[in-house]
Amino acid sequence: METMKAAVFHGQGDLRVEERPVPEPGPGEALLRIKYCGICGSDLEAYRYGLYEPGIVIGHEIAAEVAAVGPGVAGLAPGDRVTSNDIVPCGECRYCRTGRVSICDAVTMPGVTCDGGFAEYMTVAARALYRLPDGVSDLQAALTDPSSNALHAVNRSGLRLGDRVLVIGAGPIGLLIVQAALLAGARRVFVAEMNETRRCLAREMGASEVINPEVDNLDLAVADLTEDQGADVVFCASGSPGAMASTFTLVRKGGVVVPVGICEQPVAADFLSLVMNELDYRGTYASYDEYGLALDLMAQGRWRTEPLVSAVIPLEQIVAEGFEVLLQPGAAAAKILVRP
């Protein structure tokens, strides 16, 4: 039996690189040879809190090459360069039928609910794959998933041409939201971030103002930047309860808040401001249709991902040079890619 190296999740804080059999593609599936797999914030949370089933190979931000296809797969051949949607929807529930695929009732998620991409090979439903356009490198393609999620967050916000946007937290998703908001027609995008390296990245991604909320009073800074109105749209890409709580008064009356980061702790919600100011809070989870959009934007040269890549590490170092680095308080790294 042919074997491969894979990072297997064994519970809270326990991820091990082990030998596993190379999986066989079943009907409708493709076997992928992984080129890169990015470490996602959700992988970090799973590692820290033990959120996944023990025994699975995690990782879902992949760039790969088709190694083989199973029975019944048409339109894909070995050697094709691809990326995979991290959502494989049931296609039948009320949410799938109404286009809300990211909240499918019976979703399968490679690297979350079944084996994923921190491995030399993985199998995935062929219908979840996107062939990479010419001009999109494997390294770029490994950021299709977070790019798609950022585009989905902006789509969920209903951002309008000329809006002034605040992004709290300049991790990979926050940085990509800066770019997505500008593409969607934001007049100005302000970023609040404590880490200096990430503040520099935010400027590079097009933020017009970058605020360090540890030094400057964020409420006052945003008031000054918006003629005392508040931001039209606030994206909170931070898991800090304090940051999430602050959104209630950083947004203008009648504005929209999109919580993107996941707070593990309860948030002191200011329902009085929510009611009095008729605020809209809109959750955003993963993405689906925006995968194709992200790849198309990359192919056109209108979507940058390279500045976000802080390091490319071998699979064997996934814990020491990947998870542990990103979990350090105040980590400056944005995206770390694993190359099996």
Partner: peptide
Amino acid sequence: LKIRGNLLKLL
């Protein structure tokens, strides 16, 4: 008076 922070807590 514009309030930024938890209004209910302040009140």
